[in-house]
Each structure stands twice: as structure tokens, then as C-alpha cells.
């Protein structure tokens, strides 16, 4: 209703008609007064629907503009990122080699002080670990920038998801996380790219587990409520997302995790993949109560329908 208020001028004719009607009725000229009332009601209804259509179109426009901007942002960042990642990889490789050489030298002629030797070894281990961490980031960046074109095939979603859930279940040892499954029985197969989709599901599951502090539940469900679409929902009872973080959720390098725990690329990659698969990701979150990420995939992406049928 608030939005309609912005279009108050469109309602002026209707209100004018009512005004005249009141005028004529009070002047006791019955017939034309009723006509005017009817005219007023009619133009009120027409204006309401016209304004509603305009508003819907505008929000649709805004949505596509936002999506377009996001896609452009991704492309630019992707290009920059792959350049930087390649440049950073070389010095990383040099550092790694030098560490290995120092370790080699230490093995041959260890320093006399055992304490010093231990500390040097420890430092070298830290350097190696940090180089590995950086390499992980650069490789993820390159993955992000150069995602291969999806290779589509018929996939049993429940199966694919269950594999990933089991994987995450196995590695989640430090917390008490209950995994609940609500798979839709007889879910029809989906025409999609299994490795890419696995990456998405794994990423979302990892996020869900990481959002849980010590104890909680991760609920995984599949649905096919909307015709031609399949939903994969992954919900957790974790920390939730602060409302002011929501607009940046899918931005590359945006992360609220502790340093070293996340690269800020997980959700960006997920979105990129899901978009390439013709779907979208819906987010529903309440700070302190948990979040739900829903991946909505077309049973069959539109491009392939054009090509193959």
C-alpha cells in the first residue's frame, strides 16, 4: 500500500469523481450522482490494477539490473583475481623451495643448540603451512575465475546430496551436529552437472556446520514444489546472518569467519555455479536462530532444451 501512495496522482481522477459525486449528491441531483460514484469506483479499481502492474514491472526490472550488476562484478573480479593468483603463485613456489633447501641443509649440519634447532624447524613448518594456505587461496581464486562450462547429465539429486552429507558427517567430530534428512521420495532426476553441484552442496553443508557453535541440527531436504524446479534446502540452527551482512553474502572475499577459516569465496563460487546451471540461491536467515540456503534448480536448463529438442 505504501508504494501505491507514491502514485497518488494516478488516483486523482477517481478521487475527483468521488468529490463531484459528493457535490452532486449533496445538491440533490440523484441520478448523475450515482453515475459519478460508479465512475469513481470503476476508475479506482482500474487505477489500482494499473499501478500494481507498474510496480511489479519495476521490481522485476530492479531485480534483473541487480543480477546484471552482480554478474559484471563477478566477471571483473574473476579476471583480476586470476591475474593476481598467477602472479602470487610464483613467489609462493620460490618460498616453498627455499624452505625445503634450508630443511635439507639443517639435516646435514644441524645447529649445536638443540633448542635452536627445534625452533628453526618449527618456524620452517609454519612457513610451509602458510605457503600451503596461500596456495589454497590462489587455487580457489583460479577455480573461481575459470569455471568450466557445465557438462550436463541426468542426476539423482537425493543420492548426490546423501554422498556429501555422509562426507561432512564423517569429518564433523569436534561438535555435536545432528544431520536430519527430509528427502522427497521419487524425486525425478535433474539434468545438471554433478561435480559442480557436489561442490555447491559441500560448500553449503560446510557453512552450515561452521555456523553451529557446539551443538545443533543441520536439516537437508529436497522438494519439487514448483513445477519444473527442484529445491535443495540446507538449514542449520547456528549463529544466523546479521541483516546488514545479507547484501554482501555472495560477494567474493566477503567473510565473517575467523582469519584462515574461510577465503570468502565459498558462496561466491556457489552462486556462480548455480547461475551457470540456470538456478538461483535463496537465503532465509534469522540472527541467532539459524539460516536456510535453498538451491533452486531447473529440472532442465533452458539452453539445453533449445539445443536438444
Amino acid at each position: 500500500m505504501k508504494e501505491h501512495a507514491r502514485y497518488f496522482w494516478a488516483y486523482l481522477p477517481a478521487l475527483g469523481a468521488f468529490g463531484c459525486a459528493v457535490g452532486t449528491l449533496s445538491a440533490d441531483r440523484n441520478l448523475s450522482g450515482i453515475t459519478l460514484v460508479l465512475w469513481g469506483v470503476w476508475s479506482l479499481v482500474v487505477t489500482f490494477f494499473v499501478v500494481r502492474t507498474i510496480l511489479q514491472e519495476r521490481s522485476k526490472d530492479e531485480f534483473t539490473t541487480r543480477q546484471l550488476l552482480q554478474a559484471q562484478k563477478m566477471a571483473t573480479i574473476g579476471e583480476m583475481a586470476s591475474g593476481i593468483a598467477h602472479e602470487v603463485n610464483n613467489p609462493l613456489a620460490v618460498i616453498g623451495r627455499e624452505v625445503e633447501w634450508i630443511q635439507e641443509l639443517l639435516k646435514e649440519s644441524p645447529p649445536p643448540d638443540p633448542q635452536a634447532q627445534r625452533e628453526i624447524q618449527e618456524s620452517l613448518h609454519v612457513i610451509t603451512a602458510q605457503v600451503t594456505r596461500c596456495a589454497d587461496i590462489t587455487h580457489r581464486l583460479l577455480d573461481f575465475a575459470r569455471m568450466n562450462k557445465p557438462v550436463l547429465q541426468w542426476v539423482d539429486l537425493n543420492n548426490l546430496i546423501e554422498e556429501m552429507v555422509r562426507l561432512v558427517e564423517r569429518v564433523t567430530k569436534t561438535k555435536t551436529v545432528t544431520f536430519e534428512r527430509h528427502y522427497h521420495d521419487n524425486l525425478a532426476p535433474v539434468w545438471t552437472d554433478p561435480p559442480l553441484l557436489r561442490q555447491v552442496v559441500l560448500n553449503l553443508l560446510n557453512n552450515a556446520v561452521q555456523a553451529i557453535d557446539r551443538e545443533g541440527t543441520v536439516t537437508v531436504s529436497t522438494r519439487d514444489d514448483a513445477k519444473g524446479w527442484v529445491d535443495i534446502a540446507i538449514a542449520d540452527t547456528g549463529c544466523g546472518i546479521a541483516p546488514h551482512h545479507l547484501p554482501h553474502l555472495f560477494d567474493p572475499f566477503f567473510s565473517t569467519k575467523a582469519p584462515g577459516k574461510g577465503t570468502g569465496l565459498g558462496l561466491a563460487v556457489c552462486q556462480k555455479i548455480v547461475t551457470a546451471l540456470g538456478g538461483l540461491i535463496l537465503v532465509d536467515s534469522k540472527e541467532g536462530c539459524g539460516s536456510q540456503f535453498t538451491v533452486r534448480l531447473p529440472r532442465r536448463p533452458i539452453e539445453t532444451r533449445k539445443t536438444f529438442e
Binding site: N89, N90, L92, A93, I95, R146, N148
Partner: peptide, 28 residues
């Protein structure tokens, strides 16, 4: 030695008769 695992590049390397490719940085 390559900076990035890439299926296309890997296929190209194998096609040209390369033995193997390794991701940089890699342990000696």
C-alpha cells in the same frame, strides 16, 4: 609445472605427449 589445474590444459599436455603435470607450488 603449472599454476592451476585445468582440464583443457591437462588434455592439451597429454595430447602433445607430456608425461604429467604438477600444480605449483608443490613439495619437492
Amino acid at each position: 609445472l603449472t599454476g592451476h589445474a585445468n582440464v583443457d590444459a591437462a588434455v592439451e599436455i597429454m595430447r602433445l605427449g607430456g608425461y604429467e603435470y604438477l600444480l605449483k607450488p608443490c613439495p619437492i
